[in-house]
Amino acid sequence: MRWFGIAKKVLVVDDEPDIRTSVKQAVEGEGFEAKTAGNGKQALELLRKEKFDLVLMDIFMPEMSGREAVEAMRKDAKLKKQKVAFLTVVNLSEQGQSIVKKLKPVDYFQKPVDLDDFGKRLRKLLK
């Protein structure tokens, strides 16, 4: 999705290389630019160097989980308004929903995703 020749940028964060690749391809298939990171720590390093329009964040990851990474973003003056959507297998309990809500994600995708629905919601988030 280009706006005056500049594609919107998405950061895909997942520790599973196959999932990273397939989500990256799905994002690019929608016309957006995508980069990847293997855990929350790598994501934070990238986000401090480059601007992304959206982060698609897994939760269960080694070194730094998605939840910890978003908590760190919300405390960081430069990253606190970063748009983040979770993309995860985690089936949240009621308690989990209220914890995640406090992290202010713009969406919550449950893996495995339906590609049509994923594309539709992604376009809406990056409008």
């Binding site: 939760i59 269960f60 989980s65 939840r67 910890e68 985690v90 089936n91 949240l92 309990s93 009621e94 308690q95 989990g96 914890i99 995640v100």
Partner: peptide, 13 residues
């Protein structure tokens, strides 16, 4: 422990 906090997300209580 750091890695165990995620249990809160899916356990009921």
């Amino acid at each position: 422990r750091k890695g165990m906090r995620e249990i809160e997300l899916f356990a009921d209580n």
